[in-house]
């Protein structure tokens, strides 16, 4: 019982570590978010939307990463949303974890999505796609 549990947890840990924070293509219908949905203005070229919650360890580090990227790349806005106060959005976008980062293009279409703390290079890569470079 102990062994089975630890093996299962190790597998889960390895999968989580590999997937965590990696921006993925959004499958199915591409969602579009408006500044009304976000209660904030969209960036001129792209927007990084971060869903956070009160009991989230990696949210602070994620905020730092996204703020750095926003400073580096002109025309990009960083919008942070408290998941608990926007459960409507959380449900419609099917967000299960915090942080979840959505990369939106200039018109608000969700181009990429990462759950878990993303690496800076990955965010910059995903932004390249969003601004069409």
């Amino acid at each position: 019982m102990v062994l089975v549990t630890l093996v299962a947890a190790t597998l889960a840990g390895v999968v989580l570590r590999r997937r965590s924070g990696v921006p993925r293509e959004v499958r199915g219908d591409v969602e579009r978010l408006t500044s009304g949905d976000l209660e904030a203005d969209l960036g001129e070229r792209a927007t990084l939307v971060q869903f956070s919650s009160a009991f989230c360890q990696p949210c602070r580090a994620t905020r730092r990463v996204l703020a750095e990227v926003t400073e580096m790349v002109p025309g990009v806005a960083h919008v942070e949303i408290d998941a608990e106060s926007r459960l409507d959005l959380v449900r419609s976008l099917n967000i299960l974890r915090t942080p979840t980062v959505l990369v939106l293009d200039a018109s608000g279409h969700v181009v990429k999505r990462a759950s878990g703390q993303p690496r800076k290079v990955d965010v910059i890569g995903a932004l390249g796609l969003a601004v069409g470079e």
């Binding site: 947890a9 190790t10 840990g13 989580l16 989230c56 360890q57 998941a83």
Partner: peptide, 18 residues
């Protein structure tokens, strides 16, 4: 507990939003 000890991943924290 093992996920937290070995990987630093807080599964309990993830339960909050769910």
């Amino acid at each position: 507990a093992f996920l937290n000890a070995a990987f630093g991943f807080c599964l309990g924290c993830e339960m909050f939003l769910i």
